[in-house]
Write a protein that binds this DNA or RNA. Structure first.
Lengths: 137, 137
DNA sequence: GCTAATCCCTCTAGCTACTATAGCTTCAAG
DNA sequence: CTTGAAGCTATAGTAGCTAGAGGGATTAGC
């Protein structure tokens, strides 16, 4: 039996976040002590570690809910889980592409600035005048 | 004289967003028509285009506020603007690094899954067991 | 057994940058 | 003068937490 604080220390998930996950339906409502405090068991610990891990990998809460639901049917085909992971991977890649474009544009702007007065600051001028950009955005 | 709708069409910034920017102090409160509708001039258009451009480049609102303040002192040195842009560039790069690590981990997980049942689905198993990860996260 | 420190409870509000809705008023064209 | 589009304010919702207020529970030490 763990208190919510124990669970927090063992998983690295903050206490209010655990309560939030309960509210969001990622973990089921815990049993309560006589004094109305949450008491957890080992399965809850594992579940929370799963969630933590998925969050670290950037899955959002609905996706995690789906993954948990799938993990409860060991005999089902795992295409569903694969698809969720693949979609997430695709989203991550898309973000990287966008950020890389941003990086290049910012790099160009920053490196072009002579460092004199604001009047001819390349940073400010580039922001004022879209025509100075290389790529679309 | 432009209405808020004109401004929106010319800059691509949605009408409620323009009002939001006014509230956030990015643009000054517009003059009003007799019937209390906002009326803008060319300078407002330029200001809004500047904001739009900065947002497209991922600057957050406080940074844009600072950039606008700086752009009003043409004689000041532009080190401030450079620093803001450089910090933002650094933040973008950091995000790219993180996402790239994520991408690799996800790629590895997805590619390892045989595609059979949930029971031995690599996706689910990897999420359950942190020890299966290559990198820290 | 008592007390103090620490933990836990619920509820509410705040964060970013918008977006959406409701209910109302104003504007511009015909 | 009417009508439909556009504008107004105010409020609430989005994701995933985080912080705080104002209490009650638990536990370690004496």
């Amino acid at each position: 039996m763990f208190s919510i604080g124990d669970l927090s220390r063992r998983t690295g998930v903050k206490v209010p976040t655990i309560r939030y996950y309960e509210q969001m339906g990622l973990i089921s409502a815990a049993h309560r002590s006589e004094g109305n405090q949450r008491r957890y068991e080992k399965t809850d610990l594992e579940r929370l570690a799963f969630i933590r891990h998925a969050r670290d990998l950037g899955f959002d809460i609905p996706a995690i809910r789906d993954l948990i639901a799938l993990s409860r049917h060991p005999d089902a085909p795992c295409a569903g889980a694969d698809r969720i992971a693949e979609e997430h991977l695709a989203a991550v890649r898309e973000k990287i592409v966008k950020l890389t474009k941003l990086e290049q544009e910012l790099e160009r702007i920053v490196s072009h600035c002579s460092g004199d007065s604001v009047e001819d600051c390349y940073v400010i001028r580039a922001l004022s005048d879209h025509g100075m950009c290389e790529a679309e955005h």
